[in-house]
Structures are given as C-alpha cells and as structure tokens.
Simulated scan of single mutants.
Amino acid sequence: MELVFGLEMMEVDRSRNIYTLIKKLNLRGNEGPSEEGGLPKSGFLMVLLGIIFMKGNHAPGEEVWEFLSVLGVYTGRKHCIFGEPRKLITKDLVQKKYLKYRQVPNGDPPHYEFLWGPRACVEINKMKVLEVLAKIHDTVPTSFPVLHAEALRDQVERAGLRGTARAPTMAEASAPSRAKSYSSSHI
C-alpha cells in the first residue's frame, strides 16, 4: 500500500484490532497526483521519481516504460488502479508539474526523457525517494552510496534555504521596529 498509494496501515487499538490508514507522503495540494475521488497515486509518483533519480536525474522514456512493464503497468493498456498510464504520466503528472517530459535534442529518431518537475523539486526530497527505492529493493538507503550522498546534499541544501529564509525574520524580530509600533496603534 505504501509503494502504490503512499499509505501506511498503523495499529490504533491492539485489543480490538483497530487500524487506520495514514498518508505516508505529505504532498501539498489536493492529495498530490490523484484523480478526483480516486486513490492517491503518490507512491506511483515516488517510483517514477526514483527511476529518474537513479538515472542521473533524467531518465530515457524507453527505460521508464520498460521498468513499469516489470511492475505490470503497460502503456496503452488500462491499469485497474492508475487508468491509462501514458495519460497519467505524460499528461496528468506533467500538467501538475510533478514531472517534465521533453524531447531529447538532436535525437534521430526523436526520443523523450523524464525529469523531476518543479513541483516535485519543491515538495519531495531525494532522501524520501531513496527510502522508497530501498524498500523496493528490500535494502537500506546507504546501499546506494552515490544516490545516498546526493540525497544528503539535497537535505543540506534544503536546510540551508530554510535557514536563510528565517534569518531576516529573526533579525527583524530582535531589532526594535517602528513599523511594529505604528501598526499596533491602528488595531
């Protein structure tokens, strides 16, 4: 359930066998990449982002479709959960900006590649994707040393960006502000 839907089952009450489903992937927006009234497809997105991450952050379309066929997801064949995968991937996830799908320059014959979209870059960190990849391979993230190092760099960069975004706010808060006293007189 976690890999396909991004859900995890947690035990709430052991004595009465009560469980709850928890959204494992916290994407912004309306359930991230899900269809109206359908099941969340966050886990499927994480698998796609994992393929792209493993291929150096840009994955040839042929290799993505080949990998998905191993999972029983075929282009042109409606899947019971995902619907038509080509539409889901190249239209829906691209339109929601989770993926980029572009023609490779100077390709003869023309071929396409997948990249992380701008929304995925903001909402999803590489360590989370690496954890999903590790689960697929029944191992731990450090089993992929190059990817693990890149995921750690991604975490440091994200922490640095958050730190610089907070720094001016903290400095402004510690300094006396005329605007603050001015606005308080107008409340």
Rank of each mutant, 00 (worst) to 15 (best):
E2G: 14
V4G: 04
E8T: 14
M10K: 15
D13F: 13
D13K: 04
R14E: 11
R14Y: 12
R16G: 08
R16L: 14
N17R: 14
N17I: 00
Y19M: 03
L21V: 04
I22K: 09
I22M: 13
I22P: 00
I22D: 06
K23G: 03
K24Q: 05
L25V: 14
L25P: 01
N26F: 10
E31M: 14
G32V: 05
P33N: 04
S34Y: 01
E36N: 09
E36M: 12
E36A: 10
L39V: 13
L39I: 13
P40A: 03
K41F: 05
K41D: 02
S42P: 00
G43K: 02
G43A: 11
L45C: 05
M46N: 03
V47E: 03
L48C: 05
L48I: 12
F53M: 12
G56I: 07
N57F: 12
H58Y: 06
E62Q: 12
E63P: 00
L68N: 06
L68F: 08
L68Y: 04
V70M: 11
L71P: 00
V73I: 15
T75K: 11
R77T: 15
R77L: 15
K78V: 10
I81Y: 11
F82M: 08
G83I: 06
G83T: 08
E84L: 09
R86I: 06
L88H: 01
D92A: 08
L93F: 15
L93H: 02
L93S: 02
V94D: 04
K100D: 05
R102S: 15
V104Y: 03
V104T: 12
P105A: 05
G107C: 11
P109C: 08
P109F: 07
P110H: 03
H111K: 04
Y112A: 07
E113M: 08
F114N: 03
L115A: 09
W116V: 05
V122S: 14
I124A: 05
N125D: 15
N125T: 04
K128V: 02
V129E: 00
V129I: 13
E131W: 00
L133E: 02
A134S: 11
K135T: 09
I136H: 01
I136T: 00
T139S: 07
P145H: 07
V146I: 13
V146F: 01
V146Y: 06
A149F: 07
E150A: 09
A151I: 03
D154W: 00
Q155H: 06
E157W: 08
R158K: 12
G160D: 13
G160W: 10
R162Y: 10
R162T: 09
A167V: 10
A173T: 08
A175N: 10
S177H: 02
R178I: 15
R178Y: 13
A179V: 14
K180Q: 08
S181G: 10
S181K: 08
S183D: 02
S184D: 06
S185Y: 06
H186N: 02
